[in-house]
């Protein structure tokens, strides 16, 4: 088991709002090893993003335990979790989430700021990450000067710039045409071959076929 990076045991998540409570995840048991390329699929509302938020330490399970890289995260405080996110997890979102009026290289530098890296080193690393996603020419461009596919590549560069173990991508191709979507998946495959663990959420079966392992969610439960 020393190869395990993510281990969920009996995880459930109940959203509680005023008098309605809704169980979004039911008794999830899941282990993902280092270097895996996993696709999580399922219909809209099946709990994919909920699971992703828990895996990414943005949210906590209502019950069950979660070990990330051998560390049980249940009792950790906000700032410790922020620190772990910074070091071990790279996020890619469906809507890119780039800062407007901010150049590509500065967007990519964001995680490095919170890692306490100097401006000079940040610039070097951020440019390197942009080159890895084929945007070496666009370091100074602002998001509104880039196509959707290019913006998502900037977001991927941002996810990998701090060299995290795990890259979590929540419907990264959802806002893209199929050609740009394929390019994005290729980049994930390349990153996976370099050793990053990739977890990609999608509801497009075509995208999922590129993954080495597919996990299907239905109504908050793993069905396959």
């Amino acid at each position: 088991m020393k190869n395990s990076i993510i281990k969920l045991s009996h995880v459930s998540k109940i959203y509680q709002s005023e008098n309605i409570s809704f169980q979004a995840l039911k008794d999830i048991n899941l282990q993902i090893n280092k270097g895996e390329f996993v696709a999580i699929i399922g219909a809209s509302g099946s709990g994919k993003s909920t699971l992703m938020n828990i895996l990414g330490l943005l949210d906590k399970p209502t019950s069950g335990s979660y070990e990330l890289d051998g560390l049980s995260v249940a009792r950790l405080g906000q700032d410790t979790l922020a620190n772990i996110r910074n070091k071990k997890i790279g996020f890619v979102f469906q809507n890119f989430n780039l800062l407007p009026r901010t150049s590509a290289v500065e967007n990519v530098s964001l995680p490095l700021i919170y890692a306490g890296i100097s401006k000079k080193d940040r610039d070097i690393k951020a440019k390197g990450a942009l080159e890895q996603v084929g945007l070496g020419e666009k370091v100074g461009s602002h998001p509104n000067q880039l196509s959707g596919g290019q913006q998502q590549r900037v977001a991927i560069a941002r996810a990998l710039v701090n060299n995290p173990e795990v890259i979590l991508a929540d419907e990264p191709t959802g806002n893209l045409d199929s050609k740009s979507g394929t390019e994005i998946v290729r980049i994930f495959q390349r990153l996976n071959s370099k050793g990053h663990t990739i977890i990609i959420i999608t509801h497009e079966p075509e995208i999922a076929t590129h993954a080495k392992r597919i996990i299907k969610l239905k109504d908050g439960e793993i069905v396959k």
Binding site: A82, R85, N97, L99, L110
Partner: peptide, 9 residues
């Protein structure tokens, strides 16, 4: 976003 990327309070 900043918090997700590692910003502390």
């Amino acid at each position: 976003l900043r918090k997700a990327l590692g910003a502390k309070q």
